[in-house]
């Protein structure tokens, strides 16, 4: 069976610096795959490569077994890959409803509409008429996820969902994530918060300086192994 989305020996970087080195993994339908690693491990770059927003220097990206490496970002969205970017990146002068509507730019059919998104992310309910620039960080993140869903993706790429948010807000967002799952939606999650990631992910890939150093199901990996991979072997935390 071909994977929903596969990365094959991806290398990518900016100028001379290499952020991702020879990295491979596969995502199955309905699966939540988490990329964990410290700052600068290349996770965000990898997501951008998967979304078509960054061109890899080597390797291939396959969607349903088809090579989409050279399919541009907006076209890849139409094929069902949607990136919820780091820093939310809402359209600040648009209302929440308008942000969601712009999210449906690829006009793919599916179960997600403004109404179903609000059902899945209830905190959006009262906010639809509000301007995106007036939202709190958690609300913005919810809108960003909802906007991503509006394209009815098969693959949702979530970058740093909990960054800068209060724990209680993160709890709420992760609770919503459970409602978002299903229908075969594959999720690649980038997160620095190990605790959450282990709780929600079906599979983990630990990245260190651009390489995948460890992967497996949360149950199969010891905490110590993950922590070691996270920090690298020689670095002593603090």
């Amino acid at each position: 069976m071909t994977a929903l989305l596969a990365a094959e020996s991806i290398s990518a970087g900016y100028g001379d610096s290499r952020a991702v080195a020879d990295l491979s993994f596969a995502l199955e339908p309905g699966e939540v795959l988490a990329l964990v690693g410290a700052n600068g491990a290349g996770k965000s770059t990898l997501l951008r490569v998967l979304a078509g927003a960054h061109r890899p220097s080597a390797g291939r990206v396959l969607l349903h077994g088809e090579d989409v490496t050279h399919v541009r970002d907006f076209e890849r969205n139409r094929l069902g890959v949607c990136l919820v970017p780091e820093g939310r990146r809402l359209f600040a002068s648009l209302t929440v409803r308008e942000n969601l509507e712009v999210g449906a730019g690829s006009r793919r059919d599916g179960r997600w509409t403004v109404d179903t998104v609000v059902d899945a992310l209830p905190m959006l309910g009262d906010l639809l008429g509000r301007n995106a620039s007036q939202l709190s960080g958690g609300q913005q993140q919810a809108v960003a996820i909802g906007r991503g869903l509006m394209s009815n993706p098969e693959v949702l790429l979530l970058d740093e969902v909990s960054l800068g948010l209060a724990p209680i807000v993160i709890d709420e967002l992760y609770a919503s994530l459970a409602a978002v799952r299903g229908g075969g939606l594959g999720i690649v999650l980038v997160e620095q918060d190990l605790e959450r990631t282990v709780a929600v992910a079906d599979r983990l890939v630990c990245m260190l300086e651009g390489h995948a150093v460890l992967s497996g199901t949360p149950a199969s990996l010891s905490r110590q192994a993950i922590t070691d991979a996270y920090f690298g072997h020689e670095v002593t935390p603090w």
């Binding site: 907006f74 949607c82 942000n99 793919r108």
Partner: peptide
Amino acid sequence: RAAADDSETLRLMG
């Protein structure tokens, strides 16, 4: 209006 705000993110929306 979205393009005026953030054209790169608009591309990510297809």
